[in-house]
Each structure stands twice: as structure tokens, then as C-alpha cells.
């Protein structure tokens, strides 16, 4: 199966958080921890949402002591039931796109988070102790036939689903541009 992942276009992102909300609700409906799997990351050039690249040799999967993270086809999936919240995957991830979140069960709204997403600050340490900790990462909404929810709702199309065909196409374009720069004009028939 071809590999897929999502890349942001930093020139297009508004920092409007619509992708975060879509991600939270989609996973909530699925019964998963309703944390956003995208991390809106502030930079000097503006915010940019970052998420798991679905690595082929996923370091997180390799280090997970309870095999909660597995490469299933094109997606690196985290099984929340197995996760023990040890955090080793967070250390292993080369791009910082797994995070340990604390979640607790309340009667009124089901699972509720107690941290602000833009600025992960815990309400109080006592609260934190009572909560179950769990690792969250992007799973490409693998359960959703329409594909990743964040890509669908972004108002500026700043999130893009990339598959191997895209990569092959871009690579070919670049090679042709390079070829023409060294004197080979015109594409082949």
C-alpha cells in the first residue's frame, strides 16, 4: 500500500484552529481521546500545524514497550487501550509530533481535557495526578472513508494529503527542471 501523510503550506495557514477542532471532534466521535493530533506551532513567519509523518521505520513503534504503536499498512496507528502513557515514544519521535495528554472522564461531557491546546498548561498538579495519561498522534483518520478531517475543513487548503504518486510526480518535475538547467530543453513525448 502506498504511504500517505499530510503536509502544511506555511504560506497559507491562518492559524485559525479549524483543523484542530475537526480533529478533536472526529476522534471524539470515534471514542478516542478527543485531543487534537495536530500541533499548531508558532514561528516567526506565523503558525503552522504539524503532525505525524507516518514514518516507514517509525521510531515510536520501535520503542513502544507494550506494542501499542504499530505500522498498519500506510498508517502508524496508536492503540489507546494498550498505551500505558510512559512517554518513550515522545522522546523517540524525530519531529515532536507525539504528545502525552491527560484526559479525565466527567459525567456531563464524556472525556474532557484539562489543558489548553495553544499553550499546554495544566490547571493544577493535583488534577493532573487524577487523570489518565495517554500518547496521541495523527492516525490519518484511518477509520474515516472520506479521509483526514483536517484536510477537508481547512478554509485556505493549507493542509495537503501527500501520497507516493504526488512525490513521484514532483520528483519528476524537479528532474526535468534540473535537466533543462543543464541544457536539455523540452520534455520527452
Amino acid at each position: 500500500m502506498p504511504r500517505q501523510f499530510i503536509i502544511p503550506d506555511k504560506a497559507k495557514c491562518l492559524g485559525c484552529c479549524t483543523c484542530l477542532a475537526a480533529c478533536m471532534l472526529t476522534h471524539r466521535e470515534e471514542g478516542a481521546v478527543p485531543c487534537p493530533r495536530l500541533f499548531l506551532t508558532p514561528t516567526a513567519q506565523g503558525s503552522v500545524p504539524l503532525q505525524c509523518r507516518q514514518c516507514d521505520q517509525a521510531p515510536c513503534a520501535e520503542v513502544c514497550p507494550v506494542h501499542a504503536i504499530e505500522v498498519q499498512g500506510e498508517v502508524v496507528v496508536l492503540n489507546e487501550k494498550k498505551c500505558v502513557g510512559c512517554g518513550i515514544c515522545v522522546l523517540a519521535c524525530p519531529i515532536g509530533c507525539i504528545e502525552i495528554q491527560a484526559a479525565r472522564q466527567t459525567a456531563a461531557t464524556g472525556i474532557t481535557l484539562t489543558t489548553s491546546i495553544l499553550l499546554p498548561l495544566t490547571r493544577s498538579e493535583q488534577d493532573e495526578k487524577k487523570m489518565r495519561k495517554i500518547a496521541v498522534k495523527c492516525n490519518m483518520c484511518y477509520f474515516r472513508p472520506e479521509g483526514p478531517a483536517c484536510v477537508k475543513v481547512c478554509p485556505t487548503e493549507a493542509l495537503r494529503l501527500v501520497d507516493e504518486e504526488d512525490i513521484r510526480f514532483w520528483n519528476l518535475q524537479r528532474r526535468q527542471a534540473y535537466a533543462s538547467s543543464i541544457g536539455f530543453q523540452g520534455a520527452a513525448e
Partner: peptide, 17 residues
């Protein structure tokens, strides 16, 4: 604009493109 009128900001982004 991007926080208070996001869909106006989307047109600004389009213009930048």
C-alpha cells in the same frame, strides 16, 4: 484579520499566492 475575520484573511492569502 486571520482571527477575527478568518474568511477575509483567506482572500488575503489567495492574493498573496
Amino acid at each position: 484579520t486571520s482571527e477575527c475575520h478568518p474568511l477575509v484573511a483567506a482572500h488575503v492569502i489567495k492574493a498573496r499566492e
